[in-house]
């Protein structure tokens, strides 16, 4: 394969640009309330689309194991909170189901 450095540099530039631009142009500048409300809704909107429907295909061979793992996440997350136990626990749940 020929020199990939140019490809990597180009990919890095078009990835970093959109990540950086808002920090340069938005920051703590005054913006209309409606725009601010829009920005505040971004996390909830983003996380829904990041999880669904991707999660159903997280492990294509074992959708049921994934559902059990996510159920564990919900129970552990609601009960104790935090992220370590829900995440590591869900991996273990899937692991044991796959071993069965």
């Amino acid at each position: 394969m020929d020199n990939l450095i140019f490809l990597i540099a180009g990919m890095a530039a078009v990835t970093y640009g959109p990540r950086l631009a808002p920090f340069l142009f938005l920051g703590d500048r005054k913006i209309p309330g409606r725009v601010d409300a829009f920005l505040k809704c971004i996390p909830a909107a983003a996380i829904g689309a990041l999880i669904i429907p991707g999660v159903f295909n997280a492990i294509p061979e074992a959708p049921v194991a994934v559902l059990c793992g996510m159920a564990f996440t919900i129970i552990a997350g609601l009960w104790k909170g935090g992220v370590i136990v829900p995440v590591i626990g869900s991996v273990l749940v899937v692991y044991f189901i796959l071993l069965l």
């Binding site: 996380i47 999880i51 991707g54 492990i59 994934v66 996510m70 996440t73 919900i74 909170g81």
Partner: peptide, 18 residues
Amino acid sequence: QSMGIALYSLLLAVLLPE
């Protein structure tokens, strides 16, 4: 394979308290 669930579990876990 099992670790394929980790990122989804993480996303859900950070969302739950909210």
